[in-house]
């Protein structure tokens, strides 16, 4: 009973925050609602007995990605809204129609298939020790690849976002007139 109330509450809050994240005008509000949606999802993972994933979701998404998004909003001055500008693209109605199509395409088969209307059969647990063992034995190659990918992403993001130093600037302005010792202005040829 309590489980079900908790599920409905968390799911409702998560979906409401997701809708707000997509619909609000002020981008910082979007980012904060997205962070709340990520936190709601973390709580859903905890309800599904995936403790490690839930805490990793909080740590990575709320603690890092949400802050990244907020920094990007501030660095691109996107929190200053120009009054009168549109926030939705010209094809927004088609986009929403496509999204509804996708939703019905996924949700209708789910709701109409009886084998998915089931309760969990066994008690599942994801002990951290077991995750560690799996990471080091069966998934060691993806782990190393993830390490390389994260390094590449880190370096790539820094290089892309770095302000480039101009190498040699060819100055189009005429050079400033020089003053000789006698104080008269000598202009260069």
């Amino acid at each position: 009973m309590l489980n079900e109330i908790a599920f409905y509450l968390i799911a409702a809050v998560t979906l409401a925050c997701a809708v707000a994240a997509m619909a609000l005008r002020q981008l910082v509000h979007c980012a904060l609602c997205a962070a709340a949606a990520f936190a709601g999802l973390a709580m859903l993972y905890l309800q599904l007995d995936a403790e490690f994933v839930g805490f990793a979701q909080l740590l990575v998404y709320v603690g890092a990605i949400a802050i990244l998004i907020v920094f990007a909003v501030l660095l691109t001055r996107a929190d200053e809204i120009i009054p009168g500008s549109r926030q939705s693209s010209p094809s927004s109605l088609m986009g929403i129609a496509a999204a509804l199509l996708v939703l019905s395409g996924i949700a209708l088969p789910v709701l109409s298939s009886p084998s998915l209307h089931r309760l969990p059969v066994t008690t599942a647990a994801a002990p951290v020790k077991l995750i560690g063992v799996e990471l080091m034995t069966r998934y060691v190659l993806p782990l190393e690849m993830a390490g390389i990918l994260l390094t590449a992403a880190l370096l790539g993001a820094v290089v892309i976002a770095m302000r480039e130093e101009p190498e040699t600037k060819l100055d189009p302005r005429p050079p400033a007139p020089r003053r000789a010792e006698t104080g008269e202005v000598v202009s260069l040829p």
């Binding site: 936190a39 805490f55 990793a56 909080l58 740590l59 603690g63 890092a64 907020v70 951290v128």
Partner: peptide, 12 residues
């Protein structure tokens, strides 16, 4: 991990 996740959530 819970402790560190909670700590990073308060930065927002």
């Amino acid at each position: 991990l819970f402790f560190f996740a909670i700590g990073s959530a308060s930065e927002l």
